[in-house]
């Protein structure tokens, strides 16, 4: 029998935890679970799987039921459950030894390495994403991936440098609405702040560029080894997209403050070359002061527009000034 499991109920949680841990899975954070389902036989939990948004996770099957139809039933139940929420494009992040089992159920591999694999299934795919992106001609095509939360003079500097050294630059915007500035706002501010540059294209990074799917620890604090293999997968996904678009260089900003981003940059240095060159640029400073979006958000939260002004272009400043009440409310509400 398949049913949803309420993990807030200690009785069910304990059963679930036992199965998960006996299968060697590490429970990171219950907040990153939208729904959990379980398969029972005679009131014994024999299989479980969860999802967060459209990502399957915490799949575990009692050893006595592995290798049979239970896995198919489990994945199938999860897919059907997601369909009732109108979610049809589904990802799974798993160990390489389970890759084949998922492929057998119609999943396609997006990227894989020795430690992990990322697969997807449903009504959308990475190939479709690539097909929908604007195509350009040129010898030196580069890319930047940014969250721009919000767009600062530092981001502007990075794009400018790339623009001067390339025939064309793709600016991929991280598509995850867990930031203070919404996706549409971040995109708009980048576009407005780079209007004078003719050889750049600002595009949505979709679910393939630093998203909850490819890189959850960018958004959730994680252990270092988790960050390691996630960054490796994310870099591989990027490389796949880059090669399809003939991108030969990726520009990133040096990251003196965030350990996650530091590891990310190191991983990319290992994964991307020789096909895609990585250029790490020093952070832009005003005076002695390194520009960062974190500082801008802090200044917003302090309602300190004078400080905001130091770090951002006119276009971003105007937006913040006009929307300061909305932004303060979002900070207050924890969004």
């Amino acid at each position: 029998m398949e049913t949803t499991i309420n993990l807030k109920d200690p009785y069910y949680f304990k059963q679930w935890q036992q199965l998960i841990q006996s299968e060697g899975l590490f429970i990171e954070n219950l907040d990153d679970i939208t729904e959990t389902i379980g398969i029972y036989e005679n009131d014994k939990l024999i299989a479980t799987g969860s999802y967060y948004e459209n990502v399957l996770k915490y799949l575990a099957i009692d050893p006595n039921y592995q290798g049979g139809n239970t896995f198919n039933k489990l994945v199938s139940t999860l897919i059907n459950q997601l369909a009732t929420d109108n979610i049809f494009h589904i990802f799974v992040f798993t160990k390489p030894q389970y890759m084949q089992s998922f492929e057998y159920l119609g999943f396609n591999v997006i990227a894989q390495n020795d430690f992990s694999a990322l697969l997807e299934t449903g009504d959308y795919s990475i190939d479709q994403y690539i097909e929908e992106l604007p195509k350009v001609e040129g010898k030196k095509i580069s890319a930047i991936v940014m969250n721009a939360n919000p767009f600062t003079l530092g981001h502007r500097y990075l794009i400018e440098q790339a623009s001067q050294n390339s025939d064309f630059v793709y600016v991929f915007v991280v598509n995850q609405d867990v930031s203070l500035f919404k996706m549409s706002e971040r995109m708009q501010l980048i576009k407005e702040g780079t209007k004078d540059l003719t050889n750049i294209k600002v595009v949505n990074g979709g679910q393939y560029m630093v998203s909850f799917v490819t890189f959850p620890s960018y958004f959730i604090k994680s252990r270092t080894d988790v960050i390691d293999y996630q960054t490796a997968l994310d870099a591989q996904v990027f490389k796949r997209i880059a090669q399809a678009l003939h991108i030969t260089k990726r520009f990133v900003g040096d990251e003196p403050y965030s350990q996650t981003t530091e590891i990310y940059n190191q991983t990319m240095q290992k994964v991307l070359p020789p096909e895609v060159e990585l250029e790490i640029l020093d952070r832009k400073e005003v005076g002695q002061d390194i520009i960062s979006a974190t500082k801008v958000r802090q200044a917003i939260s302090d309602n300190d527009l004078a400080t905001v002004k130091k770090y951002v272009p006119e276009t971003t400043y105007t937006f913040i000034k006009e929307n300061i009440q909305t932004l303060l409310r979002r900070i207050h509400d924890g969004n």
Binding site: N69, S76, D123
Partner: peptide, 19 residues
């Protein structure tokens, strides 16, 4: 009109996603 799914991945079945 929109994506829809039917069927399962269990043995002797077929799963359709129409979009």
């Amino acid at each position: 009109k929109h994506t829809a799914l039917a069927g399962t991945l269990e043995s002797s079945d077929i799963q359709f996603t129409l979009s």
